[in-house]
């Protein structure tokens, strides 16, 4: 049996549902030595801003149980340097590139997107409205459905590229944010970004991260990510979803597909093993074959839930 891994993702057709997550995959080129970029469904590059950004002062990271906190502060080379110095090589290597973008203001976001213009070497734009590690922008849009809708409307008007909005998990109602983004013109959603956390150095009574709080990623967040993918899938049956959060094995990939993601992105696990993402492509085909699944898309949104009972007081 040959398994069909191809994945319809809105207007995009991905070779397979395995992508890599922004901020954990550099500009992709750093990984070219460890895996075949063209073998991945998509790669999302480090969040790009209009001007280059230095990021936050160190310390920026610390390990936590089953994961890590980071407050990088979106250090990046800027969209112009990306287009001039990174994108040509990514295109030459056959990578399906998703440009992850961010800004402090609506105008900043629009400026980045306009710079990318209609460049066909970029397959899609992923808008990060959910970075917890910058003082301005980011989270302000991610936490407030009205601000989010206004931002997405403006970006939608500025680009013809497929538009993926990456939602923040640091909200009470992820479905409200998903609706706001989709109603404003998002073609697809990515969830989840990191969860805001705090780690403390006991002896110094100081936060371990210079920014005080940081974004939690890794296996620790996987149950939260799965729940959010599932909630959004139930609420918006047709929207393409990239699921992510703590994926390390082929079983984790399948869990996300069953919960309702059409494709996934591998994040923090790339740090542990730089060749992991491409290996998962092969393992996914093998898993499907072992389980009699002919098309990987047949797995999507197949969670069988039991009806939830009403309270029963004794």
């Amino acid at each position: 049996m040959t398994v069909d891994l191809s994945t319809a993702f809105g207007r995009l057709r991905l070779k397979n549902p395995i992508g890599t997550a922004s901020g954990t995959f550099g500009y992709g080129l750093e990984f070219a030595h460890y895996l075949d970029l063209a073998a991945l469904g998509a790669i999302s590059v480090k969040g790009l801003s209009f001007r280059p950004c230095h990021g936050n002062p160190p310390p920026r990271i610390c390990e936590t149980d089953a994961g890590m906190l980071n407050a990088i502060g979106l250090q990046n080379v800027g969209v112009d340097a990306f287009l001039a110095e990174k994108l040509p090589e990514l295109a030459r290597l056959g990578a399906t590139v998703i440009a992850n973008v961010w800004g402090d203001t609506e105008d900043d976001y629009v400026a980045v997107v306009e710079r990318i213009g209609s460049d066909r070497r970029v397959a899609a734009i992923e808008v990060n409205v959910s970075c917890p590690n910058v003082v301005k922008g980011g989270m302000i849009f991610g936490n407030n459905p009205e601000a989010l809708a206004a931002l997405v409307k403006r970006i939608r008007a500025a680009t013809g590229h497929p538009l993926v909005v990456k939602l923040s998990p640091n909200v009470t109602d992820i479905v409200a944010c998903a609706h706001a983004a989709v109603d404003a013109g998002a073609d697809a959603l990515s969830l989840i970004n990191t969860l805001v956390g705090l780690a403390i150095d006991l002896e110094r009574r100081e936060p371990k991260i210079g920014f005080t709080t940081g974004g939690l990623s890794g296996p620790a967040i996987r149950p939260v990510a799965l729940r959010m993918v599932w909630e959004v899938r139930k609420a918006i049956p047709k929207i393409p979803i990239f699921g992510m959060g703590g994926i390390e094995t082929v079983e984790h990939v399948v869990e996300f597909l069953i919960a309702g993601a059409n494709a996934v992105q591998i994040g923090t696990a790339n740090f542990r093993d730089p060749s992991l993402a491409s290996r998962l492509v092969g393992e996914l085909a093998a898993w499907c074959e072992d389980h009699g699944v002919a098309r990987v898309s047949d797995l999507v949104d197949t969670l069988r839930t039991r009806p939830r009972p009403d309270h029963e007081f004794a």
């Binding site: 160190p58 920026r60 390990e63 990088i72 250090q75």
Partner: peptide
């Protein structure tokens, strides 16, 4: 030394401040 998540330049976690203002 610095705390490192990846070791090959992609997480941007291991930075130190330079005299030119960059990390």
């Amino acid at each position: 030394e610095s705390e490192m998540a990846c070791g090959f330049g992609v997480c941007l976690g291991c930075v130190v401040p330079m005299v030119d203002g960059r990390f």
